[in-house]
Write a protein that binds this DNA or RNA. Sequence first.
DNA 1: GAAAATTTGAGGTACGTAAATCAGAAAATT
DNA 2: AATTTTCTGATTTACGTACCTCAAATTTTC
Lengths: 345, 345
Amino acid sequence: MRPTVHDIAAAAGVSLATVDRVLNQRAGVRKVTRDRVEQAIERIGYVRDVAAANLAKSRKYPFVFILPSGDNSFMRGLEAEVHAAMARGPLERMVISIVKVPAFDAEALVAALDEVRATAPAGVAVVAVESPEVIAAVNRLRADRIPVVTLVSDLAGSARDHFAGVDNVAAGRTAASLLGRFLGGRPGPIAVLAGSMLVRDHRERLDGFRAVMDEDFPGHTLLPVIEGQDDPVLTEKLVGEALAASPGTVGIYSLGAGNRGLIAALKQRKDAPPVCVIAHELTRHTRAALNEGLIDAVLNQDAGHEVRSAVRVLKAKADGAAVIGAQERIYIDIFLKDNLPFDEG
Amino acid sequence: MRPTVHDIAAAAGVSLATVDRVLNQRAGVRKVTRDRVEQAIERIGYVRDVAAANLAKSRKYPFVFILPSGDNSFMRGLEAEVHAAMARGPLERMVISIVKVPAFDAEALVAALDEVRATAPAGVAVVAVESPEVIAAVNRLRADRIPVVTLVSDLAGSARDHFAGVDNVAAGRTAASLLGRFLGGRPGPIAVLAGSMLVRDHRERLDGFRAVMDEDFPGHTLLPVIEGQDDPVLTEKLVGEALAASPGTVGIYSLGAGNRGLIAALKQRKDAPPVCVIAHELTRHTRAALNEGLIDAVLNQDAGHEVRSAVRVLKAKADGAAVIGAQERIYIDIFLKDNLPFDEG
DNA sequence: GAAAATTTGAGGTACGTAAATCAGAAAATT
DNA sequence: AATTTTCTGATTTACGTACCTCAAATTTTC
């Protein structure tokens, strides 16, 4: 049997009330008595039964997820995952709510963070936008002892508790490594398609990609980065133009979310020499393109994993419990047409 | 506020005792009354507070993990992960124990399963060995309504609740796809190194590998499978001989656990033309070999994920709760030297 | 050494559920 | 209609912890 508060009382030779005062750091206990109780706790290996404690406290865990609005399909998928977590929440006394903020708007994000802070939630998960003001706002939350997890996009220099997302530099490096090897020495320039270079994730991916290309595959030149703003129509046009301008192009790295346009552009040049394509994010479209051989590999971050990990970490932090590091590391999934998971997109 | 049993009683116009009888399927309730209560439950959206129920019942979850003994390093890593889960167990009222059984010994496994069954655990995870007797033994557990999860190695045709492991056919296909593309048309035979063809995982990987090689890269012949019995010394010898016999070999797929021997053999032929190598399981040795460029890619199944997933599923099944499919799917991790995780190994 | 302040003890109620007892009501059987 | 059987209600205790009150014991202060 696990020891209980009663066992502590007996072991320390004090009353239950005193044990309670020590355990819940209430005032009115002499230092010597406190020490005696703490030693007893240590000695008999008491661990608080969190479930029973929560029951007694009628404790709730109000968590807030701050997500960018807009029609970025990855973000909408992320939101769907948060909704799924929301539905499962009550089973574990969690009440999850979502606050939406215009994408890439640091000012709005700061306002949202401060508003959320006023509601004193048990934890906050936020898709960060990089700016000193945002860092300060996150630090204000932490100063209030509210756990903060950054989601998908980290906030370097802040006091956030945890980052639930992938290592984007490693993702870029991996993309370069795959692309370089898949090309197997076939010479020619390589095109890079991004959404916008203003986003940290995209910059990091590009940095990683560049580093490995320069180091391991110096034979290939990188064409100027195409910024398609994650817009299908614009992307299709720009990619088409770029391929026309550099007909010898042998590879494309699509590090953003503009895959629909890319795929459309690829379909238009069926007869042209093959181009090796590495893209990000497994969606209905990239999955189909993988199967058709239009795309050679897809690097994916699993939004469901990220959300569930964020929730677990927030809960653990709220309880003052330990986080299982290995469990919360989000790996980049690499999908070829040969290891596609069955359902969903 | 979430509705409680009292709310059910009020809504159905019955007493608490009757609600309890219905909720815990005790006898002595007329069909009509039972229906009325169940409708009330439905109507007010009652969900049992599992934490409170477990507290009242002083419920424990005794789970048993049945693992193969022997010095297979993957299995020992798996055991370490089970020990880690064991240590975290008490926080969630789980008591995990380990039963070890000689590897690949169906008879011993059956005996262990029946012995475990007699202790009426709340769930069993087992690294399965394929045999009709084992299937029958697993089905006996299921007949006793004991949840069963197969771990790492599945048991087709059995009534197990869940399989916590990777799709090994897809792993083999992925290996072939990577190897074929990395070779980029460079002709030459390919060697396959396995532990033993008696293990289902290995057979499945080989099947997947063969299928894609035949289909997509028919230019390469596959040399006869080398069975190194996962023994470093034997493996080094056999690989050395095979490479000497077929000096034109361009690729190696190591689908078992004999990587130390393989790496030793590779180091002996530094001056020889490069061979593209795909191996399984990220260990200290394969990680080092990746970094040195001796191995080009490592496919990995994360034992920690598998164990944690098995535990979660067993708990959910024991509670009669739903399993989050996407969360419990174990992906094959693909590691290049560019996306190696930092610690452990 | 008395008064004041602080510390400690004893006991209760609550959280939501499980499980039990026992009395009384309703139904089924004679 | 009387009896047996089956169903239902009312009530209690318990799980492990939190939180509250009030009294008693101890220490500190003057």
